[in-house]
Simulated assay, not measured.
Amino acid sequence: MNQPAGQDHRIIVIVPHEPGQLAHIAGLLVEENINVEAIDGQLVGDLGVLILSTSDDDAALQILLRDNLRAVTSDALVFQIPDRPGALAGVVQLFEQNGLNVRTIHIIHRHGGTAVVAVTTDNDELASSLLDPDSLL
């Protein structure tokens, strides 16, 4: 999934694939007078992955986190891996072999044999190029 065109910042939100999730998020933001300026979404198994750009990304992120939604900031590289021993180790070892330093890493969802991971590195462009393109969200 690509970042909304022309946007430097984004918020990635992982939600269950259930009716009303997008309406809930939109409602939370409108209550705080935050405008959604760009949105992209896709299904990944039983999850919805939304990429948002808003009129106030910092405030929007705090609102979403306060509501216990799984959300990460714009600089995170988000990808899926098999949820099994060694899968994450394989990714971080690949990064290490290519001289990448991991700054932050979060497993933001696990379900049905898949883990969704958000990571920031000192060179996210290189990190992205090392991953299977089909795994990127």
Rank of each mutant, 00 (worst) to 15 (best):
M1T: 02
A5V: 03
G6T: 02
Q7L: 08
D8F: 04
I12E: 01
V15R: 06
V15D: 09
H17Q: 11
G20T: 15
G20F: 12
L22M: 12
H24S: 13
I34C: 10
I34L: 02
E37T: 05
G41E: 02
Q42Y: 02
Q42R: 13
V44L: 05
V44D: 08
G45Q: 09
L47P: 07
G48N: 00
V49R: 00
L50F: 08
L52Q: 06
A59L: 08
A59N: 01
A60F: 06
L61M: 08
L61H: 01
I63G: 06
L64F: 07
L65P: 10
L65S: 13
N68C: 08
L69R: 00
R70T: 08
R70S: 06
A71W: 00
S74I: 05
S74P: 00
D75L: 09
A76Y: 07
L77T: 12
L77H: 10
I81L: 12
D83I: 05
D83G: 09
V92L: 15
Q93Y: 04
Q93H: 03
L94N: 15
L94W: 10
L100D: 01
R103D: 12
I105D: 13
I105L: 15
I108K: 00
H109T: 01
T114A: 10
A115W: 02
V116D: 02
V116Y: 01
V116S: 00
V117C: 01
V117H: 04
V117W: 03
D122V: 13
N123Q: 12
E125W: 11
A127R: 00
S129T: 11
S129R: 15
L130T: 07
L130M: 13
L131I: 06
L131E: 05
D132C: 07
D132G: 08
P133G: 04
D134R: 04
L136N: 01
